[in-house]
């Protein structure tokens, strides 16, 4: 390997290392890692299993909420949720049938929701408005119709 190539490899690998340090610091020191919840559930008994037997918005006080949500072809339950401005919402989700994905465009809320697994992700809604919540994993013929909204006011 020529001297110049060695320099190039050192610099370019160095850039990759810096990228890793930045995302690693955010993941481990700031708790900003990607959604990776590990609880499981029987996908055929979602409706009989707490907390999904009673999906809905739970007020935890201090403008914090837990949104217990089930996903199925082709709907989010509950849909059309309303929260106040500045609400910090922890989404607790599972699928009743096939693989789904939940995404709120314009935010970092993007997570896979798979049958048998409970997924959690938290989002703070600082701006008022009507947020689109959509399924971004192909789930069948009506996939394009699987969406709802969250209204922040």
């Amino acid at each position: 390997m020529s001297k110049l190539e060695e320099i190039w490899m050192t610099v370019s690998v160095g850039i990759l290392v810096i990228f890793m340090v930045i995302v690693g610091y955010q993941t481990y020191a700031l708790g900003m890692g990607p959604p990776s919840h590990k609880e499981t559930i029987d996908p055929q008994k979602v409706e009989q299993t707490a907390p999904f037997d009673n999906p809905g918005l739970i007020d935890l006080g201090d403008n914090k909420y837990e949104l217990v949500m089930t996903l199925e072809a082709f709907a989010f339950n509950p849909g059309n949720v309303e929260v106040p401005v500045g609400a910090e919402v922890e989404f607790t989700m599972t699928s009743k049938d096939v693989s789904h994905g939940v995404q709120i465009p314009g935010t970092n809320l993007n997570a896979m929701v798979l049958p048998g697994h409970i997924q959690k992700i938290t989002q703070t809604f600082d701006e008022p408005g009507e947020y689109l919540v959509l399924c971004n994993e192909y789930c069948g013929a009506g996939h394009q119709a699987m969406f709802t909204t969250i209204t922040v006011k």
């Binding site: 990759l16 990228f19 890793m20 995302v23 690693g24 993941t27 481990y28 890692g33 990607p34 959604p35 990776s36 919840h37 590990k38 499981t40 993007n110 997570a111 896979m112 929701v113 798979l114 697994h117 409970i118 997924q119």
Partner: peptide
Amino acid sequence: QIIDPAISTSIKFLHVFMSL
């Protein structure tokens, strides 16, 4: 599978390294 459930953040970070 970075935003999948059921895989811990440390395994995911190991794979950031392996993919890079």
